[in-house]
Write a protein that binds this DNA or RNA. Structure first.
Lengths: 175, 175
DNA sequence: CATGTCATTCAATCCGTACTGAACATATTA
DNA sequence: TAATATGTTCAGTACGGATTGAATGACATG
């Protein structure tokens, strides 16, 4: 007899799957995380495969992503050969860190293309009268990128970070 | 004789295409915006098609997205029947607004799924001893969603907003 | 009112990313 | 050592969102 998952567990798994995909993360990673998050005991790869009806390959890949993000931990249970996992329950810190790292990474990927444009601006291949216009616009782009970088930098790494507390207080001023 | 686009214009178009796609927006919208941003005069649909080598359909769809975001404006040139467009040059405000609206929309889309989980938690279908555990975890999820909502709410709508100025000053404290 | 010009729509197609499932590697047990 | 249990890899595939291009609509002009 197959154990029936409760409605609420199923709903949270759904929610997390949707949530992850909305924010450009693998929905299966979301489902797996939610399964662990809503499970009191440790969970194995095969549990995930069975409960979420996904392939073992996908479970393996996604659980290792989650592990690399610090969202789940591998446990030693008895001396069992199976890998057991549990969720890091600090969802706010996980979300904060993922967001920050995601933004950082995206900005980093754009840096070479921005630099290339800067180089081209220095070379004298611009039709004279447009040169000044181009330089001004390119400079605005650089300023935007810098502003984005700085905004990302001040994001705290943890929800328990003092910075976040301070920022929260500031937010309340605007409320 | 086909007019040769300068390297810098080409590079910025590239950058914007990459940038948009990295942030889950249509790369062609990015290219179109960049083309207008780096053009002193107004630009027509056919200019876009020719310079970016894209289909007219795509140009039409994407320019209207950009228009709806306030990133470009339609112009009346003479009494020409053609649509002429120019870029709104305030890229910081555009980025800010797009980011805020994107986040809002994503969170809104998740609300029904979250509510559903809340409803399930109230129904007495949970295996008794797990009920408390589930409620605690679900509550943490609600708190995360609330925190995200509030964080998005305080994002200013414009780069010239006083709020942003204040926030910038605060940032400098953490620098 | 026929022709040319332009923008829009939408079904078909393309493309990138994520998932599957089979083959493999490794470890345990009989 | 064979049989079983487990995790990983990766080539093939499936899926969703973006793009194409042909058909359509709307408008001006000779």
């Amino acid at each position: 007899m197959k154990k029936q998952r409760s409605d609420i567990k199923r709903d949270v798994i759904n929610l997390a799957g949707m949530g992850f995909s909305r924010f450009s993360l693998s929905p299966i990673a979301g489902q797996i995380y939610a399964l662990l998050y809503m499970s009191e005991g440790p969970v194995t790869l095969n549990d995930m495969v069975r409960e979420l009806k996904i392939s073992k390959g996908s479970a393996s890949m996604n659980i290792r992503s989650l592990e690399s993000w610090g969202a789940v931990r591998k446990l030693w249970v008895n001396s069992d050969r199976k890998d057991y996992y549990e969720a890091n329950p600090d969802i706010k810190t996980i979300a904060l860190k993922r967001f920050k790292e995601g933004m950082s990474k995206r900005l980093d990927e754009l840096a070479p293309a921005l630099e290339k444009a800067g180089d081209s601006a220095l070379k004298g291949d611009v039709p004279g009268k447009d040169a000044q216009f181009y330089r001004v616009r390119l400079n605005e782009i650089k300023k935007l990128m810098d502003a984005l970088r700085k905004a990302v930098e001040i994001i705290p790494d943890s929800a328990s970070d003092k910075k976040l507390e301070i920022i929260s207080n500031i937010i309340s001023v605007f409320k």
